[in-house]
């Protein structure tokens, strides 16, 4: 079986600060990482590989080639191969999903495509359903559990108000939630082994028949600062409680 996992390199959102002068988030110089829910998707693929013989796991990412460093960690976790597709200068969700779908077609022989339910930076969750739509295959989103039985995949979707059990033959695309598993840390053996696993680089413009105009352009990015008082009572609990109640009273929140 061939599994393709789509993973996105994102800025580490925990590090983002707002520039007080310009009121814009400072994105330069912030650490990059693989979006954490995508790691759940990689973990699920590796588990399936461990359970099903002759399974190959390919990680696919639309990202500048400097994402090699991040992608290596997914190879160290246990994925077999990675494909990086460089994006054009201007792109939107439509461009990126088209590049992913084209790359998947170029990889060719696929049974299962796994994505995180959304990326932690923008939290849109468009990629999975978009790719499934472009490839014209079924989509099973928000899977919190899944298993493969013979020529079928079964998954349980969490739709907030309902839990829906789905099944499908291959090929199929599944997006997973954080509950589905706990991503493993790469072992030292995995880290050493990752050095010799292939990372293939494709130029995005070669995959597109013609230049794609973005359907959406970001025209502004405004910082939203969350200034909090950060008064912490660290002494004994009795004293902390007393001071907290006084403070809440002053805020007019009691009674």
């Amino acid at each position: 079986m061939n599994i393709i996992v789509c993973a996105k390199q994102v800025v580490d959102v925990r590090e983002i600060k707002i520039d007080k002068q310009t009121n814009k988030p400072i994105l330069k110089g912030i650490g990059k990482t693989i979006s954490d829910i995508d790691k759940n998707a990689v973990e699920e693929a590796i588990k399936l590989k461990e359970e099903n013989k002759d399974t190959k796991v390919t990680v696919l990412s639309v990202a500048p080639f400097d994402a090699r460093e991040q992608v290596k960690e997914l190879l160290a976790m246990g994925a077999d191969e990675a494909v990086l597709v460089s994006p054009p200068e201007e792109f939107d969700y439509n461009t990126v999903s088209t590049l992913l779908a084209k790359a998947i077609e170029k990889i060719g022989d696929y049974d299962l495509i796994l994505c995180g339910e959304a990326s932690v930076d923008l939290f849109s969750g468009q990629m999975g359903p978009r790719i499934a739509g472009l490839l014209d295959i079924p989509q099973i989103t928000y899977a919190r559990a899944m298993s493969i039985e013979g020529d079928k995949v079964r998954a349980e979707r969490d739709l907030t108000d309902k839990a829906v059990k789905m099944e499908s033959t291959f090929p199929v695309l599944i997006t997973v939630t954080k509950e589905i598993n706990k991503p493993r840390l790469p072992s030292l053996m995995g880290i050493l082994g990752a050095a010799s696993k292939p990372i293939i680089e494709w130029d995005g413009s070669d995959l597109l028949e013609e230049r794609m105009e973005p359907g959406i352009k970001s025209v502004d990015l405004r910082g939203v600062s969350m200034e909090r008082k950060n008064v912490v009572y660290g002494e004994d609990p009795e004293e902390g409680v007393r001071k907290l109640v006084i403070s809440l009273g002053k805020e007019g929140l009691l009674g």
């Binding site: 460093e69 290596k72 960690e73 160290a76 840390l185 790469p186 030292l188 880290i191 050493l192 990752a194 050095a195």
Partner: peptide, 15 residues
């Protein structure tokens, strides 16, 4: 090296 960096990151997270 990349391997040393990845090792540190993994062990730090584990720790």
């Amino acid at each position: 090296t990349k391997i040393q960096e990845m090792t540190r990151k993994m062990v730090r997270e584990f720790a």
